[in-house]
Write a protein that binds this DNA or RNA. Structure first.
Lengths: 133, 133
DNA sequence: CATGTAGATGACGTTCACGTAATGTGAACG
DNA sequence: CGTTCACATTACGTGAACGTCATCTACATG
């Protein structure tokens, strides 16, 4: 068993973050490690949340936005008042993300076209070189 | 014709940014408006670059990363030395972006599943209410 | 017991991406 | 001709997201 609990150092090595970062996320109420005396112990839930935090960051979400998203993913953690309101917000978020993917797809296509153009240029440069020899 | 040149104010309204932002981007060498006396005039190229800047930001790229990407998109603007090197970098970037899209797709699927779960909860809550009446 | 070693707690520093005055300037308008 | 715009520059301010440093505990180890 992984003991289901990890020290701050283990977390840092596993997810490649600094202790400062984990304490910062706790202060911002993104993580809720339990305390054994002074020390923090990170649960499975904390690890799931951290993965989502890091993922969110890669897509340019602010920590505050991520905190709200986390609340959506972990409704079960709290009382389920206003679930349907939460549900609506989640639907909107989903639309955001699908729009983002659309845009990203567009960007990828653009870049691919640019690359095809680049290939042609490279080819013609090689051609010129050959002709010049 | 749109005259192909836009004032800073027109740019701001078109792309919903502040003058400060455009000047900042110029200082960071992301944009290169031409000068008529003191005033900046933004070209078609500047507008294309700005669109890419705003898009990049939405995906969590830093301005410095975006600057490098812009250099890839606008090879034609400069001399074409080291085109093949540029081509390689662009290929790597493309892989980055496709990986990002994969991740985003995964996130979307996760959220969708969460939503289906939420629907079930809502349905059962409604059921409980009905039973309690 | 001295000495690490791992972690905790402030508190201040830093970088990025702009915001926000304060001040200046050239063209246009009444 | 004074004033109002629209734009410019210079410089300092700001919030987010940590980094860094000093200091303090608790525990293990030779």
């Amino acid at each position: 068993m992984t003991e289901d609990l990890m020290t701050i150092r283990e977390m840092c090595e596993t997810y490649d973050v600094t202790p400062r970062t984990l304490r910062f996320y706790e202060a911002k109420e993104l993580l809720f490690p339990i305390r054994e005396g002074q020390k923090r112990l990170f649960t499975k839930s904390d690890r799931a949340r951290l993965k989502l935090i890091l993922r969110g960051k890669r897509f340019g979400f602010s920590l505050e936005e991520i905190r709200q998203l986390l609340d959506l993913y972990h409704v079960g953690d709290q009382q389920m008042t206003q679930i349907s309101r939460t549900y609506e917000i989640a639907c909107e978020r989903l639309e955001d993300m699908e729009a983002r993917r659309e845009e990203l797809t567009q960007a990828i296509d653009d870049l691919k076209e640019q690359l095809r153009w680049g290939e042609k240029v490279i080819a013609s440069v090689k051609q010129d070189k050959k002709a010049a020899e």
